[in-house]
């Protein structure tokens, strides 16, 4: 009786750890791809695409993994607040950057131009 309860407990822990690991791996993959994109893309307007999208999803995936690991507690509520804030603030910051570059008169890169 005790043994089965223990086994069920271990099984749930394993499932939780595996879900956390998958979320962390996906999140880290997206974050690294975002960094590669920021290095590889040819001009400023293309570079804000990875910064605004891939980074947002990657960070949210890592934080969701931490939430799953933590279970339901005050810490996971705080993580949820951080996720909502990132989802609102990250696109806004990118939009502000793009607008500043546009006001400063930066022209977008066309196919065939030299990379800058």
């Amino acid at each position: 009786m005790v043994d089965t309860a223990l086994a069920a407990d271990i099984g749930w822990m394993d499932v939780k750890t595996v879900i956390t690991g998958i979320c962390l791996v996906i999140g880290c993959f997206f974050i690294i791809v975002a960094s590669i994109g920021i290095i590889r893309f040819p001009d400023f307007y293309s570079r804000i695409h990875p910064a605004g999208k891939t980074d947002t999803l990657g960070q949210s995936m890592v934080l969701i993994g931490l939430m799953v690991y933590e279970g339901f507690s005050l810490v996971s509520v705080k993580l949820l607040i951080i996720i909502i804030f990132i989802f609102i603030a990250n696109p806004t910051a990118t939009h502000a950057l793009a607008n500043a570059a546009y006001v400063a008169g930066l022209k977008p890169w066309q196919k065939g131009d030299r990379r800058k």
Binding site: V33, R40, F41, K53, T54, L57, P108, Q110, K111
Partner: peptide, 24 residues
Amino acid sequence: QVILANLDLVYRTLHPSMPIEPLM
């Protein structure tokens, strides 16, 4: 839509010839 956007962007970033053609 965010998930679709990220898969699209991952494809464009990691493709060796970088299939982008920016326009406003």
